[in-house]
Amino acid sequence: MTGPLLTVRGLNAFYGETQVLHGLDFEVAAGGITALLGANGAGKTSTLRALSGMIRATGEIVFNGLSIGGRATEEVARLGIAHVPEGRGTFSRMTVDENLQLGAMTRGDRAGIAADMERLYGFFPKLDQRRRQQAGTLSGGEQQMLAIARALMLRPRLMLLDEPSFGLAPMIVAEVFDILRKLNASDGMSMLLVEQNATAALDFADQAYLIETGNLVMGGTAADIGRDENVRRAYLGY
């Protein structure tokens, strides 16, 4: 594995006057999968939002050798960081097809876009059956898949995934992670994953960090973290 794709040093983030992140340091390796674990409200979502320039943040964020701190959300996306937000953020009044088209808004290669759409419909056959349906009428699992597919249309180098398992049945969760793993293997796409479902996340990721009230309290390989006594008791429940 080569050097890190994303390096974060001393990340602070704020909602208005309230500081929600306190000096986070972490990395995502090129081609690697990193998981951020923590309880509800620990600051996982805020971390992703800070990376995407959706909330005010200070500190150093280096992506692919480029400092991206303080950039507007759309410019971050244009650099190849696709963010699948909490609550999925699909365009509910638009069709599945249009959602995917929007995912490729930063690209100019018509042929490539069409090919990618077909490829993704191959990955997500359920979406393929609903191409002309309004996204708002899809089930929760289908919407999650659509959100991921839309993010992939950007051909990102790094994906930020905010609780992809939230509200989904275990079967679907397994399916979603399975597809993500395939994409990671085939395209070498890096991922930063935020999860409350620690079991699934540790199983999926190779690196993991634990976040508590806006501070990183532990970091290491997913296997090491999963073996830690305290993590097991607090987050894995055995």
């Binding site: 959706m54 759309e74 996306a77 365009f91 509910s92 808004m105």
Partner: peptide, 12 residues
């Protein structure tokens, strides 16, 4: 429809 999501897909 959704400015925040529009930004996330890179729309200015």
């Amino acid at each position: 429809e959704n400015p925040e999501s529009a930004r996330l897909v890179g729309i200015r």
